[in-house]
Design a protein around this nucleic acid. Structure first.
Length: 320
DNA sequence: CGCGTTTGACCGGCGC
DNA sequence: GCGCCGGTCAAACGCG
């Protein structure tokens, strides 16, 4: 049933998935972009404007992207899978291991729906912000006779979500937090299931979705929702995190200083919604074909003249 | 035994 | 109103 579309080359259909584009709907966001990429995006009708006020960081170990604060009301000092906030904008630090499990990841992120502030202190007690169903811990008897009856409540408010794509063999990447899987669903038009994880910290409401791209099975799409109200639970034995100063810094303080990256201009992207993954990928494919320039894989997570957007294009696609 | 995963059922939003 | 589908629940199960 799910083998019909499975290995169809990108020529036929190029959507990552129906819903993966649905959250790319905020009005603006910032990212690294070089001249070529900006021209590509311009071809798609997206209005790029240099934004020199906001600076984005790309270090050896982590990527730091600036997101529009008007869509993200993150609390100072809070963190979500490496997201920290400053006075004017929020930044997302991707820990090195997320970037380099098999290299290649482009963070594409945006906020969503009600990006209401969710301060850590609120997590379990504030019912107004988080109409999350009773988590079972309360043992509330269901309204319905069924054992799986759910408490009705106000409309569920989605917390800010952040997604990024990682080229990786493993679905569930270590990110310093412990996750408990609570569900798995088949994804429409994709042979690969989507897994749902929840932070094991009882007072933490952060959730995470992991799915593989139906187009390129080597790409894992990870989506975080919510903010951690606690620190990481210790790092993996290999110490990937401990040798990641950027990530460690971010975890200990929210005041990660913005750095300027030589050779990389930052643009402010404006339009009637963000270009979705498909559009970006398409444009870059074309560009890559034209430029006939293939990055060495080992260096693909470093800033190059292709910029970060170039990383989104899987090697196989580049070679087409 | 505790914790995490699996899996089928259920709920609710949304489009037609 | 109905059906589809994403998201969640929770019992059963597996594993260390």
């Amino acid at each position: 049933m799910d083998d019909d579309e499975e290995m169809k080359p990108e020529s036929s259909k190029t959507e990552i998935s129906d819903d993966s584009s649905s959250w790319l709907d905020s009005s603006s966001y910032n990212f690294f972009c070089n001249d070529r990429e900006s021209s590509i995006l311009s071809e798609f009708g997206w209005n790029l404007q240099p934004d020199n006020d906001r600076r984005t960081t790309h270090r050896d170990e982590a990527i730091n992207c600036v997101l529009p604060s008007e869509h993200m009301d993150l609390e100072q000092g809070s963190n979500l899978a490496g997201i920290s906030s400053s006075s004017s904008s929020s930044r997302l630090l991707l820990p090195e291991n997320l970037m380099s499990v098999n290299q290649t990841a482009l963070m594409i992120s945006s906020s969503i729906d009600a990006a209401s502030t969710c301060n850590p202190s609120v997590s379990s007690s504030s019912s107004e912000e988080l109409p999350e169903k009773s988590t079972g811990s309360d043992g509330k008897p269901p309204d319905k006779p069924t054992t799986k009856g759910r408490k009705k409540g106000p409309k569920r408010i989605r917390q800010p979500r952040f997604a990024f794509m990682t080229k990786s063999d493993v679905d569930h990447l270590e990110d310093g937090y412990r996750w408990r899987k609570y569900g798995q669903k088949a994804v429409k038009n994709s042979p690969y299931p989507r897994s749902y994880y929840r932070c094991t910290n009882s007072s933490c409401t952060v959730k995470k979705r992991v799915e593989r791209s139906s187009q390129d099975p080597t790409i894992v799409i990870t989506t975080y929702e919510g903010q951690h109200c606690h620190h990481t639970v210790g790092f993996p034995r290999s110490g990937v995190f401990s040798r990641d100063p950027a990530f460690a810094t971010q975890m200990n303080t929210s005041a990660a200083e913005p750095l300027y990256v030589p050779g990389m201009m930052q643009f402010h992207l404006e339009g009637r919604g963000l270009p979705n993954v498909t559009q970006l990928t398409h444009g870059l494919q074309r560009e890559v074909v034209r430029s006939d320039q293939v990055l060495p894989e080992s260096a693909s997570h470093l800033p190059t003249d292709e910029g970060l957007l170039g990383d989104i294009v899987p090697a196989e696609m580049r070679n087409r």
